[in-house]
C-alpha cells in the first residue's frame, strides 16, 4: 500500500541570531543552513497494517508523514501510496487517504461538528445514502450522538478528537495517517480512541500509520514499529523482537513476608527494595532458573515476571544509536 525508497528531505533554514544588530542585519543578508530532516529512508507497508512510527521530537516523523500525504515534496527518493505519487496531489489520491493531526483541528469552531461533516460530504462528493450509513456507523463507534449538535467550541478535547476522527473517515479512506491522535487526552479517552482505531482497522482493513508519544498507543495498536531518529530509520520490525533485542532481560518482582538478607547480585541486577518487595533485572534466559531458585529457597508470597516498560526499550534504542535491524 505504501512504498518508500531512499527517501530524503532537506530544508533550507534561515539562521536567526538574537539581538538588535543581528535582527537588522538579517534583513539584508541572510544566512542559511541546510537541515537534513530525513535521510535515505526505505520501508513498505502492506494493506490493512497498523504501523507505529516512533521517534523523539524533531526526529523526522512528521516530515515523513507529510511527504506520504503529499504535503511536502521529497528532496530525493521515491514514494508511492496506494499506487499514486503523493506529491502529484491527484484528486483520486486525496479521496483515498485521510490525515488527522492531534494538534490541529479541521472542525469549524463556532458551529456543531455536523456542519463540518456536511462540508466534507460536499467536498468528497459522498453519496447521500453512503454518507448516512458511514455517519451512523461512526456515531455509534465513537459515541458521537450527543455531540453532533453542540458547537465545537463547547466540546472537550477528547470529544473534539472523536469528532475529528469521524470527519476524517467519512469518505472511507483506505489509508489513514494519524499524527499524535491522543495528545493531551486523559487516560480514559486515550483508551477509547485506541479501541476505536483498532476496531475500525479490523472492520475496514484500513492501512494506518500512527505517530505517538504515548507508548500505550503503540503497544496497544501496532505489531510493527518504525523507529526514526536524526532522520534515519533505526528499526523496522516486530515490536516484540525489538523488546527482546534491546532489553534482553525481564523484571522479576518478588513479594516476601519479610525481605531476606541475601546478596541479590547473585541472582540479577537489583532495581528496588521496598517493604516486602524486591525488584530484580534478570537476563531473559535465566528467568526460569532464578525464579525457581527463589521459590525453592525462600518463603515467597508472590512472584511476577514482567517485560520492561516500552519507554525504556525506546530509550535504549535511541541511546545505542545503532541500527538494530
Amino acid at each position: 500500500m505504501i512504498h518508500v525508497q531512499h527517501l530524503s528531505k532537506s530544508f533550507r533554514v534561515h539562521v536567526r541570531q538574537a539581538g538588535w544588530f543581528d535582527a537588522v542585519r538579517s534583513l539584508f543578508k541572510r544566512e542559511y543552513r541546510i537541515v537534513e530532516a530525513v535521510k535515505d529512508i526505505s520501508f513498505s507497508i502492506q494493506p490493512g497494517e497498523i504501523v507505529g512510527f516512533l521517534g523523539p521530537n524533531g526526529a523526522g516523523k512528521t516530515t515523513t508523514m507529510k511527504m506520504l500525504a503529499g504535503l511536502l515534496h521529497p528532496t530525493s527518493g521515491e514514494i508511492t501510496v496506494g499506487g499514486f505519487v503523493p506529491f502529484e496531489q491527484k484528486a483520486e489520491f486525496k479521496k483515498m487517504m485521510s490525515l488527522v493531526m492531534g494538534q490541529k483541528s479541521q472542525l469549524i469552531w463556532d458551529i456543531p461538528p455536523m456542519e463540518t461533516f456536511l462540508v466534507n460530504k460536499a467536498i468528497y462528493e459522498i453519496d447521500d445514502r453512503v454518507f448516512r450509513q458511514t455517519l451512523d456507523e461512526l456515531v455509534e463507534l465513537l459515541e458521537l450522538q450527543p455531540l453532533l449538535t453542540k458547537p465545537t467550541r463547547s466540546l472537550s478535547l477528547g470529544q473534539r478528537m472523536r469528532c475529528e476522527l469521524a470527519a476524517a473517515l467519512l469518505h472511507r479512506p483506505a489509508i489513514l495517517f494519524l499524527d499524535e491522535p491522543t495528545i493531551g487526552l486523559d487516560v480514559h479517552t486515550q483508551e477509547k480512541v485506541r479501541r476505536f482505531i483498532a476496531q475500525y482497522n479490523r472492520e475496514h482493513q484500513t492501512t494506518i500509520l500512527l505517530t505517538s508519544h504515548y507508548m500505550g498507543d503503540v503497544t496497544a495498536l501496532c505489531d510493527r514499529v518504525l523507529i526514526i531518529n536524526y532522520g534515519t530509520l533505526m528499526y523496522d520490525g516486530d515490536l516484540k523482537v525489538l523488546t527482546e533485542t534491546l532489553t534482553p532481560y525481564k523484571l522479576l518482582e518478588i513479594h516476601f513476608p519479610s525481605v531476606p538478607d541475601v546478596s541479590w547480585d547473585d541472582y540479577g541486577e537489583l532495581v528496588a527494595v521496598e517493604e516486602g518487595k524486591v525488584t530484580l533485572r534478570v537476563p531473559r534466559e535465566q528467568v526460569p532458573e532464578v525464579s525457581s531458585q527463589f521459590l525453592r529457597n525462600f518463603q515467597v508470597y508472590d512472584l511476577n515476571i514482567q517485560d520492561p516498560p516500552m519507554e525504556e526499550v525506546i530509550k535504549r534504542a535511541f541511546q545505542e544509536g545503532a541500527h538494530v535491524s
Binding site: 483520486e92 486525496k94 487517504m97 490525515l99 490541529k104 479541521q106 467536498i123
Partner: peptide
C-alpha cells in the same frame, strides 16, 4: 501560521 492549511491541501478540491 497554524499549519491547518495542510488539511485544505489534503482535500480533493
Amino acid at each position: 501560521r497554524k499549519g491547518t492549511l495542510d488539511y485544505i491541501l489534503t482535500k480533493p478540491v
